[in-house]
Design a binder for these strands. Sequence first.
DNA 1: TCTTACAGTGAGTGAACATTCACTTAATAA
DNA 2: TTATTAAGTGAATGTTCACTCACTGTAAGA
Lengths: 207, 207
Amino acid sequence: MRDGAETRRRLERAALKLFVAKGVAATTVREVAAAADIAEGTLYRHYVSKEELAWELFHRHYRGLALELDRLQAGVATLPDKLEIMIRHFCKFFDQDPLLFSYLLLSQHGHLQRVTSETPNPVDVVVRVMEEGLARNEVQGLTPEVAAALVMGLVLQVAVFRIYGRLTEELSPLADTLVKAAWRLVAPGPAGTAGSSPGTSIFSAKT
Amino acid sequence: MRDGAETRRRLERAALKLFVAKGVAATTVREVAAAADIAEGTLYRHYVSKEELAWELFHRHYRGLALELDRLQAGVATLPDKLEIMIRHFCKFFDQDPLLFSYLLLSQHGHLQRVTSETPNPVDVVVRVMEEGLARNEVQGLTPEVAAALVMGLVLQVAVFRIYGRLTEELSPLADTLVKAAWRLVAPGPAGTAGSSPGTSIFSAKT
DNA sequence: TCTTACAGTGAGTGAACATTCACTTAATAA
DNA sequence: TTATTAAGTGAATGTTCACTCACTGTAAGA
């Protein structure tokens, strides 16, 4: 007979892999069990349902995401070349598979239909971190070009949310928040060096 | 009795909305039919299967994606402030919902299991466009900071592919291609002004 | 040894789903 | 008017899937 913890580890490893590869809805319990080399019924000894298992994984990685963002905020506040640090963190952040998984699960958020009032909104957190970091340190390197490139990154992020999050009425404000924050970063701002008047983005300026 | 073309339009509009919102697997034919205010059976007069319908939409938007990328390439080749144009295009590109949908479908690519040899690889196209554009024009604004921000954007894109594409053995080289291209953009390059020695990225340079 | 408790198993169950089909309706041609 | 064709319908069908349950190991304490 096996150890319960070991079984759970195997199931979660298999489920994570399959959920990332195919999405929660398209992954069958049979597949997860087979991949973990465990009987179907055994899965239900450890998790109430497939959904419950997905949520288990979601919350674990969500905590990881929040932690990483806190660390990012601390880094921005204390280290010298703020822009570089920010970017470095973002790259690391998005290149780590466990954290990437947060975004998969974020996208399934809506489908799982269980966003509680406690659940922090990761977009808000990202936006707050960037704004505070930039405002507090009057970032030197924020030329129009850098800002534009940053906006490109943010717009890409919005794209992610738009596509994989839900494009419904309730959730699209979430994307809008990020778009607005992106424009705030490049347009006026009390501390930015890239300022032009509100409404006039760097994109509307000719050579 | 209705017009066949009108019915198809209604079905596709409804399917598009639902596929984007919930994913293909999680969307039922019943839902699509109900949203289009059409009987379930009627859908099968026009499409062989739900999968077939998804592929119909996939190919249409895939063509749109390819077209837009060609236009982007033309723009980079002929207009003055190349970096700005590129970024502007990218923003527009990712902010258009029909094109965003391509990415949703790209993510379902693997699940639908029907990538043919003719199907162009969108990552390759993006990379080629950026490399050629930058190489040909010796882009002025490519300071380390701009490059870093661009990389951030690209890494975000990789994230998208990693998460929503398939993280399997066959497809992860695709993500690696983009990562490598990103580093090539910031590191050495024959035309870039951001050059340092290969292997030494701007991220490893201290203040 | 016997007992209790926990872990594992896979055939079985019912609900949800994609797809089919016998039939109806409308428009146009003969 | 009648015949033909294309479009539409929703109850019926068979399949897939999440989840259950009666039963089998295994280990540790009495």
